[in-house]
C-alpha cells in the first residue's frame, strides 16, 4: 500500500496551480457578469430571463463534469490504487453536489416564468435529480466507516455505477418528450446560440471551471490532512488533550 505516499509533488503542483485558478476565476467572473448582465441582449422570446442561462448552463456543465472526474478517480482507486485518487473523488463530491443543486434551483426559477411551472417530472429534470441523489449517496457511503480505507471500494463502485446516468442526462432531451429545450451548445453542427450570448456563456463556464479547480485543490489538501488524522485515530492513540498521536504512515491491515 502506498496510500498517502510522499505528497511533496502534489503540494508543489497545487501551490503552483491554485493562484492561477483563483486569478482566472476572478477575471472570468467579472467579465462574465459584465457580458451576461449588461453587454448582451435580451432574448426575442424569453426576454431577460435568458440571463438565467449564464448561471444555469455552466452549473449543469459542472454538475456532469465533476461527476465524470469522480468516476475517473474512482476507476483509478480500483485499478491502480493511486494515493491521491480517493482524495480527489472525496474532495470533488461536495462541489459537484453544490453545482447540481444550483442547476436544479436556477432551472426551477427559469421554468416558472417560461413554462409556467417550477418543476415537471420529465426525463431531463428527473435524471439531474438522480444525479443529485447520486452525489449524496456517494458522500454518505464514503463517510460511512470510521476505519480508514474501508469505504474506498464500495464508494468507488457506487460512483462508477452512477456513470450510466451521464449519457441519460445528455440525451434525455432527444430520447423522450420534454419541456426542456434540446441541446444548443454541444452538438455536431455547432452551437445554435447567438454569438452575443455565447460570449457570457463561455466566460461563466470558464469561471465555474476555475472555481472548481481552486476549491478542489483546497479540499484535497484538507482531505489529505483529514486522512492522516483518521489513520492515527483508528489506531486509538491520542494524547491527553485529545490530539491523535502515533506513528503516521503505518497502514492498518487492509
Amino acid at each position: 500500500m502506498h496510500r498517502f505516499a510522499n505528497p511533496t509533488r502534489f503540494f508543489r503542483i497545487s501551490n503552483a496551480i491554485l493562484p492561477v485558478a483563483a486569478a482566472g476565476f476572478a477575471v472570468l467572473t467579472v467579465l462574465g457578469l459584465y457580458y451576461g448582465l449588461i453587454a448582451s441582449p435580451a432574448d426575442y422570446q424569453q426576454g431577460d430571463t435568458v440571463r438565467i442561462m449564464y448561471i444555469h448552463v455552466p452549473a449543469a456543465y459542472m454538475a456532469v463534469m465533476i461527476y465524470a472526474v469522480i468516476a475517473g478517480a474512482s476507476a483509478s482507486v480500483l485499478i491502480w490504487k493511486h494515493p491521491l485518487a480517493e482524495i480527489t473523488a472525496r474532495a470533488a463530491a461536495p462541489v459537484g453536489l453544490a453545482f447540481t443543486f444550483l442547476c436544479l434551483a436556477t432551472g426551477s426559477l427559469w421554468g416558472k416564468p417560461m413554462w409556467g411551472t417550477w418543476w415537471v417530472w420529465d426525463a431531463r429534470l428527473t435524471s439531474v435529480l438522480i444525479l443529485f441523489f447520486l452525489y449524496i449517496g456517494y458522500m454518505t457511503l464514503a463517510n460511512a466507516f470510521d476505519e480508514p480505507g474501508r469505504a474506498s471500494k464500495p464508494a468507488a463502485i457506487l460512483a462508477l455505477v452512477g456513470v450510466v446516468n451521464l449519457p441519460i442526462i445528455k440525451f434525455s432531451v432527444d430520447w423522450w418528450n420534454t419541456l426542456h429545450q434540446p441541446a444548443a451548445l454541444i452538438r455536431l453542427d455547432g452551437p445554435t446560440i447567438a454569438p452575443e450570448m455565447l460570449t457570457p456563456l463561455f466566460l461563466m463556464m470558464g469561471s465555474f471551471t476555475c472555481f472548481f479547480i481552486l476549491v478542489l485543490g483546497l479540499r484535497m489538501r484538507s482531505e489529505y490532512a483529514a486522512a492522516r488524522l483518521r489513520n492515527a485515530m483508528s489506531r486509538g492513540v491520542t494524547t491527553p488533550d485529545g490530539v491523535p498521536n502515533g506513528p503516521v504512515g503505518r497502514e492498518p491491515a487492509a
Binding site: 440571463r51 448561471i55 444555469h56 453544490a98 443543486f101 434551483a105 436556477t106 426559477l109 416564468p113
Partner: peptide, 26 residues
C-alpha cells in the same frame, strides 16, 4: 430585468451564496 427581476436576481444571488459558502467552508 424586463419584469423578470424576481426570477433572475435570485439565480445570481443563489450562485454567489453557494460559491462563497463552498470557498469559505473549504
Amino acid at each position: 430585468m424586463g419584469g423578470h427581476a424576481v426570477y433572475i436576481w435570485p439565480c445570481y444571488a443563489l450562485a454567489a451564496a453557494v460559491m462563497v459558502y463552498l470557498l469559505v467552508g473549504s
